[in-house]
């Protein structure tokens, strides 16, 4: 079984000329991607994560042929994106969250029809695909509506279909659920799961949405500063970091860090203390009760660990896991 995606010590270096003062230009070298090695098997549903500026979109651009790597080996669907761009585009599908690839003034169906000709999809196959996606994503009600009149959720469903009509082997989705309401997100996620199951399409999902990650991805790759800092199963990650929550308590007066079973004080500011605990080990209610038993509580709040925090902690090597 060959890998759908292969990256071997891939690097991308930019020379940035930033303005310093009125006229001078400073030359700065930025290693957006500083040596990434990665292999994605066919049929995997991969979550690709990292803080903003980590090098995510640069990697995706190199995988889709938009950008040429400074060094390293890239293979997507067995092709080198830098050299065989046009051939590659027939084997991949792309949805870039904020950028619309459909024709704005035309009915959705017309966009599909145009793409069919651009990609040279055989008649029969096109009809089958359209019918199948139409059913899965419930496109029928708005197939004749001009794209500019579609709601965001409808448009995203249209974009997904557009990216898949030509039976790509690998699909790159950049923040596909951003801005969608809960119901729409659910629908997109179900569709992606079904797509992956039914057709074995390899999916690379770039997202900030923890829900997407949890519900869709079996494997997660986290990058920061152009390097891979985590590559493993979701379960693993959840086990290590995902259940962490923080109980923020306001005491009546400043006290030394509380000692309660299951909770660990990570920060103290005057009468306020931050207690970190594992959601799967002790519930917030129990912890609160334990704190209340020891001292007088004025107020409390619960903070969830967001993906940025997880990534930050991964980067620090799990120092305070």
């Amino acid at each position: 079984m060959s890998a759908a995606i292969e990256l071997e010590d891939v690097r991308k270096r930019f020379v940035v000329r930033a303005k310093r003062g009125r006229l001078r230009r400073e030359r700065r070298v930025v290693d957006a991607v500083a040596g990434i090695t990665l292999a994605v098997e066919e049929g995997e549903l991969l979550g690709y994560l990292g803080p903003n500026g980590a090098g995510k979109s640069t990697t995706i651009k190199m995988l889709t042929g938009i950008l040429v790597p400074t060094s390293g080996r890239v293979r997507v669907a067995r092709l080198d994106p830098a050299r065989r761009r046009i051939e590659l585009t027939r084997r991949i599908g792309v949805v870039f969250g904020q950028r619309v690839q459909l024709w704005w003034d035309l009915p959705l169906r017309d966009s599909f029809d145009l793409l069919r000709h651009v990609y040279r999809v055989p008649d029969q196959r096109y009809r089958e695909n359209l019918e199948r996606f139409s059913a899965l994503l419930d496109l029928e009600p708005f197939l004749e509506t001009p794209v500019r009149q579609l709601s965001l959720g409808q448009r995203v469903r249209g974009e997904l279909t557009a990216a898949l009509l030509h039976d790509p082997e690998v699909v790159f989705l950049d923040e596909p659920t951003i801005g969608l309401d809960v119901v729409a997100k659910q629908r997109v996620r179900e569709f992606l799961v079904e797509l992956n199951r039914e057709r074995g399409v390899t999916v690379v999902l770039t997202t900030h949405d923890l829900g997407d990650i949890e519900r869709l991805c079996s494997r997660l790759v986290v990058i920061d500063h152009g390097r891979v800092i985590w590559d493993g199963a979701i379960e693993e990650l959840k086990r290590l970091y995902g259940r962490e929550r923080t109980l923020v308590v306001d005491l009546e007066e400043p006290e030394p860090p509380l000692e309660v079973p299951g909770g660990r004080v990570v920060r103290v500011e005057g009468p306020r203390q931050w207690l970190r605990f594992r959601g799967d080990e002790v519930s917030a209610a129990h912890l609160t009760a334990a704190v209340a038993a020891r001292t007088r509580l004025v107020d409390l709040a619960i903070e969830e660990t967001d993906i940025e925090e997880i990534v930050r902690r991964i980067y620090r090597g799990g120092a305070d896991a």
Partner: peptide, 14 residues
């Protein structure tokens, strides 16, 4: 500027 050219690069035409 708007990144539309990138979309052109991922389509199988010149």
């Amino acid at each position: 500027r708007e990144g539309t050219f990138d979309l052109i690069l991922v389509r199988p035409r010149g």
